[in-house]
Design a protein around this nucleic acid. Structure first.
Lengths: 349, 349
DNA sequence: CCGCTTGTTGGTCCCGTGTGTGACACGGTG
DNA sequence: CACCGTGTCACACACGGGACCAACAAGCGG
């Protein structure tokens, strides 16, 4: 049953003017109290606070934004036309980290999913409209238009994952990013396999248009510069793609005794194929994945040895860098950060 | 290399005033043109449009919101303290549908992740602050405070999934929801197992504080009202939980010859246990899941027969209902919608 | 006692748009 | 020729709140 005596104040939201009137001060003073209370005597501060409480005053966001030119919102742009994102817990975890850290900064998260070039107009209009103070972008593809748009409109941005231009060796200080040490993590994984005495270590790679996949290939080659071409097989970061790549690999090189797989999903597909073919893991073939996605790596048979990256922490870090940039009056850009990885040993290697 | 002769207009965003001046009309006329151009002669419309183009004018969102009291944004509130959300593609897919439909309506998506009671204050402030025109809420738990808050502030809302109070039989027209036919889908799954000649059909249920899990139990009981208590085993919607439940079930009732599992993740865990115990699927035990999450159901061994729900379509539908409500001057509430399910037959049953 | 400094406070303007209210021109009608 | 309805347009106000600036009081040193 609805409230029988509805409060008339409920529908008409009180304004700062009303608070000031009730507290018996001017609107300017009320405003000062609401924004921290600096330069106002304690008794008046208390009066205003009381009036705010009694009236249930909540500042009008639009009015405040209009004058401060700040709106306390950050856009998260994910450019991922493939279906993969939505079956990959990676983004969800990163967004969780981002959400938590944004909450700590009293900022809101506006989610922009980009699918196809047509959407870029929309994003452009949105950014140009000044709806958000900054952007957290996930630029996954090498042919991405996003960096150009962001540069053009000078929107403070932090990237998740090393953007392509940086991968070309042209680190742009105006496009800071947060990424895990893909190359170093890959090196550690391959070294681990080598240290187990494996002689023929293969690599199932991710899609070549993703920087993280390329970096992991580089890490593999750092340790095994002389590995045969055919030992590196392309995959697409999906379970099925991993299974196909493993099949291809076994057919081409029956002597393979270890595989470093570029992510956990593909590794789970690879494990399935190995099991179907009666190949023992890790006795005959040792397998190491990448990501340490709990729902996958702990559920495989056998449980997957893999390279952990702290996805949620990376999300939080992105927010911190962006806030640093927004709150530094100087407009100085923060440095990019590469977070460490850690080899998690389970049963598969 | 940055533009050598940076456009001075770039940093100072043009205002409607500037557009009007350039077009030689008053600001009021320029405003009318920008908002559709009704009641303005064609030649003037063209002049203003040209000025907008030349200046690269983009309306100031905050100023517009201040006067129209509409801000073209919708909050998506997900109250899920458990880690599960983030390893479950369910939400991602629904959000994808929501995002697409919001784009079609030129509205933005503000993501609010709620974790724990402390966060409700934040959400309350946010909703009361009038940051969004409406809310899409996923109320998963029976002890949810969200409906009360939303009712209190009279924010137009559409629920994803039948809220608890509706499950108690008190359908509140002011809290419309979109849900799939959990009970009907469960019935179809169980009937299918019965039609295969199975005599001892068990059910691995989801957590009892989630309405969808309860509805699926009801569907199971609709078909098998006399099933023994011990044939219904509790799970938690995770792969591991499914494995535990299956183990428990096999120990208690070795004669079981079919299982309807409340979601695909648990079904994949159950299949793993069956395989480990050397139980053949579907010969010895037939298995049906729920959700038809492609990444899971197609990847299990054997591929999973399951009940499909159109998650993305449900997301889109939620947005349509909300927009209907927002755009109807009458403030009338749309009706709740229950979308159909479909049994997808693969190899497991 | 006077002038100056420091600390508070209120008045006022401005942020950028939407919209109601008139004014004006035009053409048709009596 | 006077009157009036219709279509266009400009003016001005309002939306809610931040920030500058002048006014004022109190305190202090000379």
């Amino acid at each position: 049953m609805p409230d029988p005596t509805p409060d008339p104040h409920r529908d008409v939201r009180p304004t700062l003017e009303a608070v000031a009137a009730r507290a018996g001060v001017s609107r300017a003073t009320a405003s000062r109290v609401v924004n921290g209370g600096a330069g106002v005597r304690q008794p008046l501060v208390d009066q205003v606070r009381k009036a705010v409480e009694e009236l249930g005053y909540i500042p009008n966001h639009a009015a405040r934004t209009l004058v401060t030119r700040r709106n306390g919102a950050v856009a998260v742009i994910i450019d991922e036309p493939e279906f993969r994102v939505f079956s990959d817990p990676f983004f969800s975890r990163q967004i969780r980290g981002i959400s938590r850290e944004l909450n700590a900064h009293d900022a809101q998260l506006v989610l922009l999913l980009v699918e196809g070039s047509g959407d870029f107009d929309r994003v452009t209009r949105y950014l140009a409209g000044g709806h958000v103070d900054g952007v957290l972008a996930f630029s996954l593809h090498t042919d991405d238009e996003l960096p150009a748009i962001i540069r053009r409109f000078r929107v403070p941005t932090v990237y998740g994952g090393r953007p392509q231009h940086a991968a070309r060796g042209q680190d742009d200080p105006e496009l800071p990013y947060v990424d895990c040490d893909n190359r170093g993590g890959a090196r550690e994984a391959v070294r681990h396999l080598v240290s187990l005495g494996r002689r023929c270590v293969a690599h199932i790679a991710g899609p070549r248009d993703q920087v993280s996949a390329l970096d992991r290939i580089d890490g593999y080659r750092d340790v095994l510069p002389d590995a045969a071409e055919e030992l590196v097989v392309d995959g697409d970061f999906t379970t099925e793609g991993g299974a196909r790549a493993m099949t291809e690999l076994l057919d081409a090189r029956p002597d393979v005794d270890a595989v470093f797989v570029s992510n956990d999903l593909m590794a789970s597909g690879a494990l399935r194929v190995l099991r179907e073919r009666g190949v023992r893991v890790p006795e005959d073939v040792a397998v190491v994945g990448f990501d340490d996605m709990a729902s996958v790596a702990e559920a495989t048979e056998p449980p997957l040895t893999t390279v952990r990256q702290d996805v949620e922490g990376m999300g939080r870090l992105m927010v911190r860098l962006l806030m640093e940039r927004l709150n530094s009056g100087t407009g100085a850009w923060p440095d990019s950060v590469i977070t460490p990885t850690e080899l998690v040993r389970r049963a598969s290697a």
